[in-house]
């Protein structure tokens, strides 16, 4: 039994002479939460759309639990749950009706659909809104519904495309809790986001994708260890200059030196955003 849930090899996509993906490769282990991090237009959504067969790849291979998308499309689709970036729910139908249609699309028997619907409404704290029309729900509730809809057929691999985009901090935290809960139940997750804090908090491993290329991949902790765990931001007339330190003592020494001639110095812990800035300053 393969321990790899998703394997992407040399994936390319060209949209009318413009390359969107330039041969990206990565693997996601079973039970892992792997994030693709990058700015808008980097190729994150295109990657997810190819894995869900919404977009045809120009080249490369996608294997989901060892099965090829091209050869076993229906089997592969059955094992994947997809939460798109845009809210593609039927606004005029109720929450339960949206889940029912999804269950039928995946060939679930009616009794199972009913049972699973109630379970998922409970998990997403949507039980009381089950008979509400989707158009009556807030943005955060719609987003939660979108996530549980993708879980209806109990997929082994969940693809989340920017699941918290445009949501306020309280709702984002609720969604993060839901995502962790899903991972803890054994589901493998591939997440795309451009929020560094989200990726750092949730991911076991992350890959930075810029202009259709993966420029680095590792665990958030390893990335931070390599760069240094502490950062000193020195605000100057020309911008911010950031220095990285392996330990707090070195960072504090440097802080004292700099505060003698400048008040605008901040000592803080390094985040994934530092890694992103450092990695991408050469590429952007």
């Amino acid at each position: 039994m393969s321990e790899i849930a998703l394997e992407v090899r040399n994936l390319t996509k060209i949209y009318s002479n413009t390359p969107a993906l330039k041969g990206i490769s990565f693997t996601v282990k079973k039970g892992e939460l792997f994030s693709l991090l990058g700015p808008n237009g980097a190729g994150k959504t295109t990657t997810l759309r190819i894995i869900t067969s919404l977009t045809k790849a120009s080249g490369g291979t996608v294997l989901v639990f060892g099965k090829s998308l091209n050869e076993d499309e229906k089997i592969v689709k059955r094992r994947i749950g997809f939460v798109p970036q845009h809210i593609n729910l039927d606004m005029e139908l109720t929450v339960r009706e949206n889940l029912l249609i999804h269950g039928l699309l995946y060939g679930m028997p009616l009794r199972e659909i009913k049972k699973r619907t109630e379970e998922l409404l409970e998990i997403a704290e949507l039980k009381e809104r089950g008979n509400s029309k989707v158009k009556e729900l807030s943005g955060g509730l719609k987003r939660r519904l979108l996530i549980i809809r993708a879980l209806m057929h109990s997929p082994a691999l969940l693809l989340l495309d920017e699941p918290t985009v445009g949501l306020d901090p309280h709702i984002r935290r609720k969604i993060w809790g839901l995502i962790k809960q899903i991972q803890n139940s054994g589901t493998t997750i591939l997440l795309t986001t451009h929020y560094m804090d989200e990726a750092e908090l949730l991911s076991d491993r992350v890959a930075f994708i810029i202009s259709g290329e993966i420029i680095a991949q590792d665990s958030p902790l390893n990335f931070i260890k390599k760069l240094g765990e502490y950062a000193l931001d020195i605000f100057t007339d020309t911008g911010i200059s950031t220095h990285y330190f392996k330990n707090k003592e070195d960072a504090e020494k440097a802080l004292q030196t700099h505060t003698t001639y400048s008040n605008h110095v901040t000592l803080r812990k390094v985040t994934l955003e530092d890694i992103f800035v450092k990695l991408t300053e050469r590429h952007l």
């Binding site: 067969s53 499309e73 689709k77 059955r78 845009h86 729910l89 999804h102 699309l105 995946y106």
Partner: peptide
């Protein structure tokens, strides 16, 4: 507009 068709496209129908 709703992009619901994508839900159908990504399902095993």
């Amino acid at each position: 507009y709703l992009k619901v068709f994508e839900e159908f496209q990504s399902s095993p129908i």
